[in-house]
């Protein structure tokens, strides 16, 4: 079984700060991480490998520094890692990204494609389904568990707002995974030392058969017109009181608002 895992290296958005002087994001020094939903997908792929034997190939599109992430994925147990990297790919929206990913995936063999549901920098959840569409594959999104897999089909548990669905799809297909689906394993010492002997396959524009007008910033139908950070208005009374007085004041406020029944 050949499993492709699609991953993205992202800035750790919980660590982001805003420059109060300029109102812009401070990106310098923000650590990069493997996107959490993708990492759960990676773990699910490795579990399939542990149980049934599988060849796990990690694919990412990004700048050269994404190699660091791929080294870590080798350390976790990836069999192959591929980096799609070219200035012509950069600045892509989800449609252009999917065109690029699909152009590469069409050149390899696979039975199952696992992508994280969404990346924490963009939160769009679009690249998985759009890649599935470009490959003409069925999809199941918001997957919380893989229940069973055979040569022809996979059964998964999908998480919806208020319930779950058990869904069967024919293979090959694309599933998108939630970060809660599987806790990623640690890198092993042997894995880490082996990772440096393994090759990261680099794919550039010239290696793909793809129309240059459907990729990168230029090929993207959606454009960012402007960006801004939210201004926070200081409009409250901030009181310094002892605990008991604070509690009494909060209860009085709730009473004033008619929120405590008689």
């Amino acid at each position: 079984m050949n499993i492709l895992v699609l991953l993205k290296q992202v800035p750790d958005t919980t660590e982001m700060q805003i420059d109060k002087e300029t109102g812009t994001l401070i990106r310098a020094g923000v650590p990069t991480i493997t996107n959490p939903d993708d990492l759960a997908g990676m773990e699910m792929a490795l579990r399939l490998k542990d149980s049934y034997g599988a060849n796990v190939t990690c694919i990412t599109m990004g700048p050269p520094q994404a190699r660091n992430m791929l080294r870590e994925l080798y350390s976790m147990g990836a069999d192959n890692c591929v980096l799609l990297s070219d200035m012509k790919f950069s600045g892509a929206d989800t449609w252009a990204t999917s065109n690029t990913l699909a152009a590469y995936i069409k050149t390899v063999d696979y039975d199952l494609i696992i992508a994280g549901r969404q990346a924490i920098d963009g939160d769009t959840a679009q690249v998985g389904p759009q890649t599935a569409e470009k490959l003409n594959l069925p999809q199941v999104t918001y997957v919380d568990d893989i229940i069973d897999i055979s040569k022809e089909r996979i059964i998964v548990k999908k998480a919806l707002e208020n319930n779950y669905e058990i869904i069967e799809s024919s293979l090959p297909c694309v599933i998108t995974t939630l970060s809660t689906a599987a806790k990623p394993r640690y890198m092993t010492v042997k894995g880490i030392s082996d990772a440096f002997t393994k090759e990261i396959k680099q794919v550039s524009f010239d290696d793909l058969e793809i129309d240059p007008t459907i990729i990168g910033l230029k090929g993207s139908p959606t454009k960012v017109k402007k960006t801004f950070t939210k201004e926070v208005h200081k409009n409250s009374d901030v009181l310094h009181l002892d605990g008991k007085t604070s509690a009494r004041k909060i209860v009085e406020t709730l009473l004033d608002l008619n929120f405590i029944g008689k």
Partner: peptide, 13 residues
């Protein structure tokens, strides 16, 4: 919103 709500973008097509 993007970047976990740290930044807002206005997008056009």
């Amino acid at each position: 919103p993007a970047f976990g709500g740290n930044l807002f973008g206005t997008i056009i097509n």
